[in-house]
Design a protein around this nucleic acid. Structure first.
Lengths: 144, 144
DNA sequence: CAGTATCCCTGCCGATACTG
DNA sequence: CAGTATCGGCAGGGATACTG
């Protein structure tokens, strides 16, 4: 179902509930598309997923691999991913403890759609950048 | 206020910063993929895009169509989309003024990848939900 | 090692009032 | 109608210290 410039397929359906129709103002949390979109838009989630798609990692490995992430955010991100079944967490009861995070099949499956989006971004990067340049050049007060 | 005395209207730091100031401590700022991901993850952006894919809309039409959005957020969202060349803004110098927003070809092209992601979300919605249910049932943080 | 708990500050967003 | 200016709350997230 390609969309081009005609009708809006699936996406429309799912978001229509949240967007247009007589829905309660606060509770559009149930839309699975919105749900995934929010997760994907999260700064750290995708970076963690990408790292885990490469192979299983331990907590501190991820902490080093994902540049700039804090313990707090890494924990939170991993918990969310685990909860959604995208990542599997395994604790080895050693001393000191070792914990391994591994992408699940479901999680790996998400990489496909993400790649499509990434490909689009790369393919149209020049268009976007030139659009920005044009926009910024349009009317801008002299900068100090 | 803190931008100096030059009158840069609404456009928050994102617009101002991208235009001229070199005040950007983050190193991974200009990754196009991250860029698109952030936009897509934005609560309002996708809703506005979806509405505009259906057809051109005026400001107030969008305000009504995208449930819960404020004038401020709609303006900000539209400016960002316009700047990236995803949406075209046309002002008709009538009284009172009429402004039409129309999706561009570039913007409509984004709907494809979005659709792929949406399809994935719908397809695996059950998996995610059951994973959540299992996770939530696993170990309750029993706090008396 | 792998987290949790806490503090604190930024900046996002909604509500409101005002203009051309 | 189509925005802009301003304020205030409140939650997201970084830094740090502590624990099993």
């Amino acid at each position: 179902m390609s969309l081009g410039h005609t009708a809006v397929p699936l996406l429309d359906r799912q978001l229509a509930a949240a967007a247009g129709s007589a829905d309660r103002p606060v509770s559009h949390a149930q839309c699975p598309v919105r749900d995934v979109l929010e997760r994907v838009g999260d700064k750290w989630t995708v970076l963690v997923v990408v790292e885990l798609v490469r192979g299983p990692r331990r907590f501190t490995e991820l902490l080093r691999a994902v540049d700039g992430i804090s313990r707090r955010m890494l924990t939170r991100t991993l918990r969310l991913l685990e909860r959604d079944g995208l990542v599997e967490r395994t604790v080895f009861p050693t001393v000191p403890p070792a914990v391994e995070y591994r992408i699940t099949e479901l999680g790996a499956g998400l990489a496909g759609p993400l790649d499509v989006l990434a490909a689009w971004a790369v393919e149209h990067r020049a268009d976007i950048e030139s659009a920005r340049a044009a926009y910024d050049a349009r009317d801008r007060p002299a900068r100090p």
